[in-house]
Nucleic acid binder design. Structure first.
Length: 302
DNA sequence: AGATGTCAAGCGGAT
DNA sequence: ATCCGCTTGACATCT
């Protein structure tokens, strides 16, 4: 299950949202026009949670220690038209899945997408964003999850002002901050800038290797990783993905280029780390890493 | 049956 | 000024 980097150092791997082998997703959703059908929403959420449990078992059997839930686990949960009290109705099943993940030793996370903009100059956008983040934090709490991963979002032609708004929107949101981890992106926010925002919110930083290679700012990968790893008071996490050579810059490849992985391990040096793999092939991109790690000589990890 | 376009939400960037 | 990408599935409408 754990790759031995050194006497005590381990690396774990994970993937996001769905398992292609099982043909299961934790992100079945529906259109807003159908949201008033409470029975249907209820069945959908139960289906997503059932898929989660099956995926957790599969992951444990295949030595995979991380899984990212789809943000759509409970679709439209933070929307004002959501038809019932989802925490009341699904709390017990969420807790059950959380106990299972705990037993299997699998770290759970969620990663809300592009519409979540706590740094927006538009107060309505900020409010909706915070509402969605509270939903994610609540789900993670019920599941015993670990990480709410977020980008800084837009820059609005004034990066310091955007960071100020971002920080002010989340200051005091203790339930969110407990899980929050901030990630660099491929165009706007470098690791160095994310470190600044994270420092102000006292929250850890995730380095995404592909994003960093496209938007490194002044920092080497080694420096960026070492700075980010020190921000973690729980087990640190990084994101790993490779460029799809046939697509535009930033597009994820089906699998992970082994050289990208070696560069990552080499840049990290020692210590435990969790690696979230972002690849079109999902679990199929992770399995070779799990297998490869078991036969790599120790020197290759350093 | 299969193919296509649109759906809650917001940005930045290309054109 | 308008469209596209991020990511993915649902589903209405068409062929």
């Amino acid at each position: 299950m754990h790759y031995q980097k050194g006497e005590r150092d381990t690396v774990r791997f994970g993937y996001a949202s769905q398992n292609l082998t099982l043909g299961l997703t934790t992100g079945q959703t529906l259109r807003l026009a159908n949201l008033q059908d409470a029975e249907r929403v209820h069945a959908l959420v139960r289906s997503n949670l059932s898929a989660l449990e099956e995926i957790l078992y599969w992951n444990a059997e295949h030595g995979i220690g991380l899984f990212r839930l789809s943000q759509l686990l409970i679709p439209f949960a933070s929307h004002p038209d959501f038809p019932y009290d989802w925490e009341q109705e699904h709390g017990r099943l969420l807790a059950r899945a959380g106990v299972l993940a705990g037993h299997l030793g699998i770290r759970l996370s969620m990663h809300p997408g592009q519409f979540i903009q706590p740094g927006s100059p538009n107060p309505d956008v900020r409010d909706r964003s915070v509402a969605e983040l509270r939903y994610v934090a609540r789900v993670l709490s019920l599941l015993g999850g670990a990480d709410l991963v977020l980008h800084l979002g837009g820059a609005f032609d004034n990066k310091p002002a955007a960071i100020d708004r971002f920080v002010r929107s989340l200051e005091g949101e203790e339930d969110v901050l407990k899980y929050l981890a901030l990630e660099n992106d491929e165009r706007l926010w470098t690791v160095e800038e994310v470190l600044e925002a994270a420092c102000r919110l006292r929250t850890p930083v995730i380095v995404d290797t592909l994003h960093h290679s496209l938007n490194p700012g002044e920092l080497s990968l080694r420096y960026a990783l070492n700075a980010a790893l020190t921000t973690w008071r729980r087990r640190p996490k990084v994101h790993l993905s490779s460029q799809d050579p046939s697509k535009q810059l930033g597009a994820h490849a089906w699998g992970v280029n082994m050289n990208d992985f070696r560069v990552l391990l080499d840049s990290i040096g020692g210590g435990d780390v969790d690696v979230m793999v972002e690849a079109k092939g999902k679990e199929g991109a992770v399995l070779p890493l799990v297998a490869g790690c078991q036969i790599l000589p120790l020197e290759a990890a350093r």
